[in-house]
Write a protein that binds this DNA or RNA. Structure first.
Length: 804
DNA sequence: AGCACGCCGACT
DNA sequence: GTCGGCGTGCTC
């Protein structure tokens, strides 16, 4: 009986986005499973692939079918659930199946392809230049020949059949092993060895004697050096006498540097208990119900999660907790680790490839029961999921911006249906989509109206910066904010200042000719960074040092415009020279662990003012913070995006929530040039309801979600004309295919019309019900993508885009 | 995608 | 007569 495997190969291209049949060699038949990774010959090369189905026959003619060349996993890396989920993702987000499969695994398991040149004949037949490269080895990386400019010689040798080129498939990451010392488990042998050591070798004698009290143990060399007061040379010598051996032991890399204390549950308020009961009931009844937990800042949503998870673990099931990347602070993860200890794995982008792999393995091997992580943790390979939680449900980081463009919320709900378990979407400011669904009873709404410790919400004051300007205050601090800061400094309370920008100045301008420094690759002005004296592009990373004269007119009247965190810091130190300021932005948190360090320092009271960007809006929970200042609420309001009002309201509410979370009352000062805008006006009372009503009205009028669905098509090319032409062609084609209830807007140049040297055009599709949309878009890709790629056109499709 | 195959023009 | 350009088509 023959066994045939259907394999999805690691080639992301439309024509090969389907399973290929391979024969399973006899020695693999009992080991291979669906979800195993395999190495297969594909055309002239070797690639990695995933087994998606095993069957006993095939329609492929015998002369065409090839065997699997290697099985990479004894245990499959993907479950049947994941294989199903990948098919769904492929359809739902219009991506390649291989991309959908790869996104579920840590990057360490991805393939690394290397071209190797192997010697086939006597080395003496090669020209001198090639002989040198080979040296003593018979296999050399192709890159070496490229580096040394020997491609012509190589080609010649290839024609003469002296060498062959082969593609080697390797795995990116590996299991970490440590070298340990295994002490001989025979006491008598140790005694005998000790007796044979010459009296001159005192240290060796001592070590063997020490080993006699550790018979059969495995110990790290460093521990031995310390405890037995000895050195590596002595240990080497003793090992050569046979008293111990070196062994290699598999370990998990440990991303946690500090241990946490075990903590007990907190008492719940009535509201919290009611919410918890409903969730637990749903869990017990194995319902795939989606809850929207709408609780104001400080209402104790996390405590509800923790107790629900505890119930879930009691039932012998696993829990997945998703948090936005930015709020994956130690404060948050510690809270989970202090409740569930070693049962928690943490996954976020701050971990190294190896650390991510190990956290994934803990889940895969069933060593942990709870995962706390960013977006991709929604794919945690648990097999018996009891609850899935998305904290700060409205956050845009839950949507992946490149293929597969999935939303973690949708994946969570899919998995909840598979496992018959509830999903909890938690937020103080839910996305309009989710709240609308809750109102329509698609989701079950749970509300927490009061703060857990009964503290009142902070008082919010909106300051009109236009008035300040009229009264002659040209600084970036209003008088009101300055007074408040003064008061806190005197009372030794802490202040958080929030600025929605980084860098020193937004742009660099020549005062004589008005030239603004621009990025070479993108249509974006460069941002001045004071610490490095450089001008950087925040989109592609391009940077130049600050020019002494204008590149256009050579005038030396160069000025820096706009406000960034560095400039605020400078002004702060002028206004309040005694205040200790900590700055937290992308620049000061580049180094691994810097994020934690800054927060820790602020929490310990080492500074009076924390000044930062987006990243301080979440998760900060220190009792001594009593003042929050928002320097300019407008920055996010004027973005060309239909969600800008929602984003602004969410941000203001989140930031305000940082103040007065404990005994001391909090105060918030919001500075703005548009105090009359409803997103700002309504954030004063921090009431979600009125904002929701108002924003829904706007969405209805403008035809945006949740009233309509959106799809965004983007066409880009290095040449403007090409990009525009093909964007036009695309829109024309779509208009001819889609029905009249679908409106197609565009093509228009994208917000940032040139990015990384490509001009971008986009069109927006708005629809209510259009069953043909996905098939039509797939047809568009099928008909045109591979053809256009040869012309340099990149066509991308984003269903339910978060930003437009 | 990435590679071989094949056809055509420029050179030893 | 051979080398290398890139258009075409296939990958179990």
């Amino acid at each position: 009986m023959t066994l045939v495997a259907e394999v999805i190969v690691d080639v992301a291209a439309y024509p090969v986005d389907r399973p290929f049949d391979y024969l399973v060699p006899d020695d693999m038949t009992t080991l291979i499973e669906c979800g195993s990774r395999v190495k297969v010959p594909f055309g002239p090369r070797n690639v990695l692939g995933f087994v998606v189905l095993l069957k006993e026959s095939t329609d492929i003619p015998l002369e065409k079918i090839k065997p699997v060349s290697q099985l990479l996993d004894i245990e499959p890396v993907l479950t049947n659930e994941m294989l199903e989920l990948a098919k769904w993702l492929k359809h739902e987000t219009i991506c390649y199946e291989i991309d959908a499969l790869q996104v579920m695994l840590p990057s360490a398991l991805r393939a690394k392809y290397e071209k190797m040149v192997t010697l086939q004949a006597d080395i003496e037949l090669l020209p001198q230049s090639l002989k040198e490269i080979f040296g003593n080895s018979s296999k050399v990386n192709y890159k070496e020949f490229e580096k040394n400019n020997l491609l012509h010689e190589l080609k010649h040798a290839l024609n003469e059949k002296l060498v062959v080129i082969e593609n080697v498939v390797k795995q990116k990451g590996n299991v970490k092993e440590v070298r340990k010392v295994q002490i001989c488990n025979d006491l008598n042998k140790l005694l005998e060895i000790q007796n044979h050591i010459s009296n001159r070798a005192k240290k060796q004698k001592q070590l063997v004697e020490w080993m006699q009290s550790h018979v059969g143990e495995t110990i790290e060399p460093n521990t031995i050096y310390e405890e037995a007061n000895t050195s590596s040379q002595v240990l080497q010598a003793v090992i050569s006498l046979g008293a111990a051996t070196f062994i290699h032991e598999e370990v998990y890399r440990d991303p946690f540097t500090k241990k946490v204390e075990k903590k007990d549950f907190l008492d719940l308020t009535d509201e919290q208990s009611t919410a918890l009961e409903k969730i637990v009931l749903s869990m017990k009844q194995k319902q795939s119900e989606t809850f929207l937990l709408h609780g104001i800042t400080g209402s104790g949503k996390t405590e509800v999660y923790l107790q629900a998870i505890s119930q879930c673990l009691n039932d012998g099931k696993e829990a997945i907790v998703l948090v936005p990347e930015i709020s994956l602070t130690p404060q948050m993860t510690e809270r989970f680790r202090s409740r569930f200890g070693e049962l928690v794995a943490v996954m976020h982008s701050g971990l190294s490839v190896g650390e991510k792999y190990d956290e994934w393995r803990k889940v895969h091997e069933g060593k942990v029961k709870v995962v706390v992580g960013a977006r991709s943790a929604v794919f945690a390979p648990f097999e018996n999921v009891g609850i899935i939680i998305l904290d700060e449900e409205h956050e845009s980081t839950y949507k992946q911006e490149d293929s597969p463009r999935y939303h973690a919320r949708d994946v969570a709900i899919w998995r909840s249906k598979f496992h018959h378990c509830p999903v909890i979407l938690g937020s103080a400011t839910p996305s309009l989509e989710s709240f609308a669904r809750a109102k329509k009873n698609v989701y079950t709404l749970l509300t927490l109206r009061e703060r857990a410790l009964k503290q009142s919400l902070p008082t919010v004051q909106v300051v009109d910066m236009r008035e300040e300007l009229q009264k002659g205050n040209r600084s970036m601090f209003s008088r009101s904010l300055m007074e408040s800061i003064e008061v806190r400094l005197q009372k030794k309370e802490q202040i958080v200042l929030f600025l929605n920008r980084r860098g020193y100045s937004s742009f660099v301008l020549c005062r004589d000719c008005g030239t603004v420094l621009q990025c070479e690759n993108c249509d974006i002005s460069l941002t001045y960074h004071r610490s490095s004296e450089k001008c950087k592009c925040h989109y592609c990373g391009y940077e130049i040092s600050v020019p002494k004269s204008c590149p256009q007119c050579e005038s030396d009247h160069i000025r820096f415009f706009g406000t960034g965190t560095q400039k605020v810091e400078e002004e702060l130190s002028k206004l309040f020279p005694e205040a200790r300021v900590l700055r937290m932005d992308v620049d000061t948190t580049k180094v691994k662990g810097a994020h934690e360090q800054i927060l820790q320092a602020f929490g310990d009271g080492q500074a009076d003012i924390l000044l930062g960007t987006q990243m301080i809006a979440k998760g900060l929970d220190y009792p001594n913070i009593t003042l929050v200042g928002v320097l300019s609420a407008d920055t996010s309001l004027h973005l060309p995006d239909f969600r800008s009002a929602e984003k602004t309201f969410q941000l203001l509410t989140q930031v305000s929530g940082r103040a007065g979370r404990h005994e001391k009352a909090g105060e918030v000062v919001i500075q703005t040039y548009t105090p009359e805008h409803y997103a700002i006006e309504l954030s004063k009372s921090q009431e979600y309801g009125p904002f929701y009503e108002r924003e829904m009205l706007m969405r209805h009028q403008a035809g945006y979600p949740p009233y309509y669905y959106l799809a965004l098509i983007q066409v880009s090319h290095e040449d403007v004309m090409m990009a525009a032409e093909y964007a036009g062609k695309t829109v024309e084609w779509l208009r001819s295919k889609l029905s009249f209830n679908v409106s197609i807007i565009g093509p228009t140049a994208s917000g940032i019309s040139r990015l990384q040297n490509r001009y971008r055009y986009q069109c927006l599709i708005k629809y209510k019900i259009e069953p043909d949309l996905i098939p039509t878009l797939m047809q568009l890709i099928k008909l045109y993508r591979s053809d256009w790629i040869k012309k340099g056109i990149i066509l991308s499709v984003d269903l339910d885009p978060t930003m437009i």
